[in-house]
Amino acid sequence: MKIEHIAIWTHNLEGLKDYYCQFFGGSSNKKYINEKKQFQSYFISFESGARLELMSRADILEQPKNSNDPMQTGYTHFAFGVETMAEVDSKARELAEHGFPILSGPRVTGDGYYEFETLDPDGNRLEVATVYVKR
């Protein structure tokens, strides 16, 4: 079994689509629009087969986020895996240069990863990680 996709509600549909395509190599389908429900969405596909569904409707309420405190029940983050520690470092630099916050790292974790944490344009927490290889 595999996770087929993860869905995110947003009021910034185009911005999130562009972010995940530009910075994480995603490929977007054509926008789906359901006029009756006032619903719009994109599926962003990644080389690994994983997909994100970005969804928007005007009546969706904002959920309060405290990006400085991931210690809450429910969704906390999802991670993009890369092959090397150099790719982790490069992605952290690229996102920082484009104004996205680096919340922690790059660093070695106690469970054997080399990673950093950041936020997407909506404040959703992401990690970029690889298995730690001692240099």
Rank of each mutant, 00 (worst) to 15 (best):
33 I>C: 11
33 I>E: 15
35 E>S: 09
36 K>I: 09
36 K>V: 12
36 K>F: 15
37 K>G: 00
39 F>S: 02
41 S>G: 03
41 S>V: 02
41 S>D: 10
42 Y>W: 00
42 Y>G: 01
42 Y>P: 00
44 I>K: 02
45 S>K: 15
46 F>P: 10
46 F>D: 07
47 E>C: 07
47 E>Q: 12
48 S>W: 02
49 G>V: 03
49 G>I: 03
50 A>S: 15
52 L>V: 05
53 E>R: 11
54 L>M: 03
54 L>S: 04
54 L>K: 04
54 L>P: 05
55 M>I: 09
56 S>C: 15
56 S>Q: 14
56 S>E: 09
56 S>P: 01
57 R>Y: 05
57 R>I: 03
58 A>K: 12
59 D>T: 10
59 D>H: 15
61 L>W: 09
63 Q>G: 00
64 P>W: 04
65 K>T: 05
65 K>P: 03
67 S>R: 07
67 S>I: 10
69 D>K: 04
69 D>V: 07
70 P>L: 09
71 M>Y: 08
73 T>K: 10
73 T>A: 13
74 G>I: 13
74 G>Y: 10
75 Y>N: 08
75 Y>R: 10
76 T>Y: 13
76 T>F: 08
76 T>R: 13
77 H>P: 00
77 H>Y: 14
78 F>G: 11
79 A>Y: 02
79 A>E: 03
80 F>D: 06
80 F>A: 04
80 F>C: 11
81 G>M: 10
81 G>Q: 12
81 G>W: 11
82 V>E: 02
82 V>D: 08
83 E>L: 12
83 E>Y: 06
84 T>F: 03
84 T>C: 00
84 T>H: 02
84 T>S: 12
84 T>K: 05
85 M>P: 02
85 M>S: 07
85 M>K: 09
86 A>T: 09
89 D>G: 02
90 S>H: 07
91 K>S: 04
91 K>T: 08
93 R>Y: 01
94 E>D: 05
94 E>N: 06
95 L>D: 06
95 L>S: 00
95 L>K: 05
96 A>C: 10
96 A>D: 07
97 E>V: 00
98 H>Q: 01
101 P>L: 05
101 P>S: 09
101 P>G: 04
101 P>M: 05
102 I>V: 11
102 I>L: 08
102 I>K: 04
103 L>Q: 09
